[in-house]
């Protein structure tokens, strides 16, 4: 039952992050939501490694998720800086030029 509870924790973190990524207007807050979602994926991967298959591949999945976190953070800040420098915009609703 511990395995299922850890996966429910991962699902909770993922869903809280998803709510933030969908509902926030600020680009930085959206990035925070995505960080929480990846945090949930890391917890789930660690649970799968511990409770089902303690092989090396499971650890590599966690390394991949951590790298995704770093890439998302760096590119998010770079895009925020670029769009703010060009148009003084830091909210998604002010940067909806391509909205159909």
């Amino acid at each position: 039952m511990t395995f299922e509870l850890v996966l429910v924790l991962a699902a909770g973190l993922f869903s809280i992050g998803l709510f933030g990524a969908l509902s926030q207007q600020s680009i930085v807050m959206i990035m925070m939501g995505i960080e929480l979602m990846i945090g949930g994926i890391i917890v789930a991967a660690a649970a799968f490694w511990h409770f089902l298959a303690p092989a090396a591949d499971g650890q590599v999945v966690i390394v991949g998720a951590v790298v995704a976190m770093a890439v998302e953070m760096a590119m998010g800040f770079a895009v925020t800086t670029a769009i703010y420098r060009a148009r003084q915009v830091d909210m998604t609703d002010m940067a909806e030029d391509l909205k159909g």
Binding site: L7, F14, L22, M91
Partner: peptide, 21 residues
């Protein structure tokens, strides 16, 4: 508050949580 579509976001994230659980 700097939110948009709070109700829809709650609905989607709640549905995703329920499906995952």
């Amino acid at each position: 508050s700097m939110l948009h579509n709070k109700r829809g976001s709650l609905l989607v994230s709640g549905a995703v949580f329920a499906a995952l659980v």
